[in-house]
Nucleic acid binder design. Structure first.
Length: 181
DNA sequence: GCATCGATGGTG
DNA sequence: ACCATCGATGCA
């Protein structure tokens, strides 16, 4: 009974992945003795080069090249001089879309506070070393979880500069979770 | 509660 | 100069 999510799942639009991934579990095993299991409770979709909030709207650069890979790899970048952001690349090759993971509940280590995208990566130790790595590997993959009763939507956080794209409801979260940022 | 602000460094 | 953030501070 495998409930692992296959890489093919991610080769669809970011807006779909962002919603379907809520309630699923990220399994992350950075070392032999350490294995995290995290329920995803908040996401945002960045939907391609036309999306003014998406890094790929500036074109293909060294940083954004990861987003042009086929869906199913991690896009991890550094912001504000101290935080990393963890994204799932989605869609087929050369469709630069991604889903930002904004918050989770750590089921294996309940004391960890994963209530925000910067805290999520900091607490789990996800940094640029994992950029472009597969999300369907032994040490890093998703499992199907329990569907939330409801998924709420809102505008994305911190993208006021994105013009007509700023107010679009591309942030998704489980309103029943205390970990939502 | 909420608004504001500094930290800190990669990116284009 | 800007930034897909956080935590501290000030004031209510």
């Amino acid at each position: 009974m495998s409930t692992r999510i296959p890489c093919s799942f991610f080769r669809r639009p970011a807006k779909e992945v962002a919603q379907k991934i809520i309630g699923s579990h990220l399994i992350f095993q950075p070392t032999r003795d350490l294995k995290y299991r995290v329920k995803i409770v908040e996401t945002e979709a960045y939907v391609g080069a036309q999306d003014l909030a998406c890094h790929a709207s500036k074109g293909r650069t060294n940083r954004t090249s990861t987003m042009y890979l086929p869906g199913g790899v991690a896009y991890i970048y550094f912001v504000y001089g101290m935080y990393h952001m963890f994204n799932i690349v989605t869609g087929p090759k050369d469709h630069p879309e991604a889903v930002l993971i904004r918050a989770g509940e750590c089921l294996s280590h309940p004391d960890l506070d994963l209530s925000g995208p910067g805290k999520f990566t900091r607490e789990l130790g996800l940094d640029r070393a994992w950029n472009s790595k597969s999300l369907c590997s032994k040490s890093l993959y998703f499992r199907r979880g329990t569907l939330p009763l409801k998924i709420s939507k809102s505008a994305r956080i911190g993208v006021a500069y994105a013009g007509a794209w700023a107010p679009r409801k591309l942030r998704f979260f489980d309103p029943a979770s205390d970990a939502v940022s």
